[in-house]
Design a protein around this nucleic acid. Structure first.
Lengths: 191, 191
DNA sequence: GTCTATAAATCGATAGAC
DNA sequence: GTCTATCGATTTATAGAC
């Protein structure tokens, strides 16, 4: 079960949902071609289980980052750091979460889209807090939220474990970039 | 031929390379199921033609943006504006360029990766110019270049023609966000 | 629960008429 | 150059033994 989820994540991340055969997944999990259907009714059901678990993990991470630190600046710093690092550290699941979920069945797709909207809304609320309190200075809140999440999400596209940067490196870099997008670092002008 | 390229771009952008059938492409182009093979030897050959044309268009756009304006700040402003808007305006081709090219055959893949490296190098050179001349203040040039391009590329993922923003809106927003990432707007501190 | 074997459907690509 | 018809291979999923 866990073995199949892991095999599915690696296969889908590597080749995409439709290019992955059930034989490939079974093989990665050390099972026979029919082994997938013992635990999942279909290939789509496996994608659904992966997408749901991945989105819930991401939403948990984001919720904690946005509530535990005491100020909007510290909350967004933590968000960018943890969310960017998550896309690197769990880049297989992250790729499924960000790029394969459109291949879900219509019902499962709608379910996942609701989780994604929830995540956006949580981030937007904290950015609005920061703007209201004067910690952030932005042209447009929605565009800024989109850009912040865009940066983190795109990590799943370009990240390679054989690259120059660790997940933790990426986290601290992206926290700094996020503060720039938020206009939260104006107290330390460069040059 | 042009009809097939257009049909292929829309189909691949909509459902991905492997989920697209040659019958689907032919149907979108108004041809019979065998119609694809009159102009292309295989489905992969069509993806190759699309990827190549798309990457060359992107590289042209970027090259002009990075040479026509007179200063690094104006060059990067133009780059972010045009490149982000391109990913919205041509989001079908852009999706193929950014997300489907890994499904090319190894030889064609290598050809496209070379074009992508060329694009990165051009951007990095201008950012380095701006840092040397004192127009930009960044922690790390490579990370900043990656983030700038990340922002533009991710537009192809989330953009919808039925959305709130036009391609031109996105261009001007992203130009402003890019200057923040570059530390190029420190002369106008907020609050 | 895992296997082997295979059914049923679909897909990429080709043959050959016009 | 476009069509109809179809081949051959592959894929998802199931049947049934162990």
């Amino acid at each position: 079960m866990d073995r199949l989820l892991d095999a599915g994540a690696r296969a889908f991340a590597d080749k995409g949902f439709h290019a992955t055969t059930t034989r490939d997944i079974a093989s990665r999990a050390g099972l026979s071609p029919a082994g997938v259907y013992v635990h999942f009714a279909s290939k789509e059901a496996l994608l659904h289980a992966l997408s749901l678990a991945g989105h819930e993990a991401a939403l948990d991470l984001v919720s904690r980052a946005l509530t535990e630190p005491p100020t909007p600046t510290l909350r967004l710093t933590r968000l960018m750091s943890d969310f960017a690092a998550w896309h690197a550290e769990h880049h297989e699941v992250a790729r499924v979460v960000q790029y394969e979920f459109p291949h879900l069945s219509p019902g499962h797709y709608a379910e996942v889209v609701a989780l994604r909207r929830e995540l956006h809304a949580k981030v937007q609320a904290v950015v609005e807090d920061g703007v209201t309190g004067g910690e952030f200075v932005v042209d447009d809140v929605r565009e800024t939220v989109l850009a912040l999440l865009s940066l983190c999400i795109d990590v799943a596209r370009w990240y390679s474990p054989r690259g120059r940067l660790t997940a933790s490196d990426i986290g601290s870099r992206y926290a700094s970039l996020g503060l720039r997008l938020l206009g939260a670092d104006r107290r330390v002008p460069g040059s």
